Amino acid sequence: MYNSDTPLRAELPTSRQLLRSTILAAISALVLLVAVVLPAEYGIDPTGVGRVLGMTKMGDIKQQLAAEAAADAAATAQATKSPATGSSGLAAANAAEPAAKAAVVAVPKEPGQAVAPKIEWRDEMSVTLTPGEGTEIKMKLAEGAKARYSWVVEGGTVNFDTHGDAPGKSISYEKGRGVPSDEGVLEAAFTGNHGWYWRNRGKANVKLILRTRGEYTDIKKMM
């Protein structure tokens, strides 16, 4: 015979208590899903808590990486299916290239032609990205403010996303894959942080140099 403490019927939870515990557990799980899982995994932040805690940015980056991986896989599959260029096609391309270059070089400059003025940049930042590494630089801009920019990659190319964010707001201005450089004017759609996210998808280190000027109040590296 073994001695055991058998609980009394009065000590057992009632059906109402069990139901209440189940409902509380379901509500807790739903709150965690909306406030933590959705922002951190998918960049979806209906409550705004994820952006305050910095989890929405994590989810945005995860979604961007997933999209880049899918695009890379699709590009690889397409390249595998496409037939290789024949030797005659390569010969024709090589023969046409010198003629095209000669046509460009042969155009003389007009006497007295105006030379574009050299741009005086306000800030210059540089960062080295290892294979697979990403970085983000943003400026603080008021709605309608403009900033002129120019960035160039030394030693390769990068994938980029020009975007902006503010509490409860986000926007993607432009995206690109395998780009060696870009320049233009960024006009803020709303007051907040606006800038770029770059990722090195190559197999060697690259150096990214960003030059900016304009109506921003601050510029800094976010990650």
Rank of each mutant, 00 (worst) to 15 (best):
D5A: 14
A10G: 09
E11S: 15
S15T: 08
I23H: 11
S28H: 05
L33A: 12
L33F: 15
V34C: 09
V34W: 11
E41A: 13
E41G: 06
Y42E: 02
I44T: 06
P46S: 13
T47V: 05
T47G: 07
V49I: 15
V52W: 10
L53Y: 03
G54M: 07
T56W: 03
T56P: 02
I61M: 05
Q63E: 11
Q64E: 08
L65W: 01
A71S: 14
T76Y: 11
T76D: 13
Q78L: 12
T80W: 08
S82L: 13
A84P: 02
T85W: 04
S87D: 07
S88I: 12
G89P: 01
A91W: 14
A92K: 07
A93M: 14
E97L: 15
E97V: 09
A99S: 11
A100Y: 15
A103P: 01
V104K: 11
V105C: 04
V107W: 07
P108S: 14
P108V: 09
P111E: 15
G112Y: 08
A114G: 04
A114W: 05
P117L: 07
R122V: 04
D123G: 05
S126L: 08
V127H: 07
T128C: 05
P131S: 07
T135F: 00
I137E: 04
I137A: 07
K140S: 13
K146T: 10
E154K: 11
E154L: 10
G155K: 01
G155F: 00
F160M: 04
H163R: 06
D165G: 08
K169G: 03
S181E: 13
L186V: 02
A188H: 05
A188S: 06
T191E: 10
G192W: 02
W196T: 02
Y197Q: 10
W198G: 01
R199W: 00
N200L: 00
K203A: 01
A204E: 07
N205I: 00
V206L: 00
I209K: 14
R211H: 07
G214K: 00
T217Y: 03
M222Y: 10
